[in-house]
């Protein structure tokens, strides 16, 4: 979970990173068929996802350290009792 400000920052960060990525990705057809360009975009794809996952994870850990867990996570337990004790 995040505060409203944190969520807004995350949204715009992802939009900015994603937008820049799409510009690079969209330019691939004009690279003259160089394999290096395509491989570079593939590596960038995985790197970008890993970076964003690391940043988001850090945000959530910081938030969890600063805020007590809410009374309700908003998730109902399943009929068999599983899936109801989430802390994300």
């Amino acid at each position: 979970m995040l505060t409203e400000g944190g969520l807004r920052r995350r949204f715009w960060r992802r939009t900015a990173l994603g937008g820049a990525y799409f510009v690079i990705y969209g330019g691939l057809p004009w690279t003259g068929g160089r394999p290096g360009a395509v491989i570079g975009v593939m590596v960038l794809t995985v790197g970008l996802l890993a970076l964003e996952a690391a940043l988001s994870g850090r945000e959530e850990r910081s938030f969890a350290a600063a805020h007590p867990a809410p009374a309700s996570t908003g998730r109902m337990p399943a009929p068999d009792g599983s899936g109801g004790s989430r802390t994300d």
Binding site: G18, Y21, Y25, L28, G33, P35, V38, T45, L49, A53
Partner: peptide
Amino acid sequence: YGHLGLLFAAGFLASYVVFGFW
């Protein structure tokens, strides 16, 4: 098909950015 086939692969992979981010 050379780089055209490679482009295909890049496209399939790039879709995970949209999926993962939003």
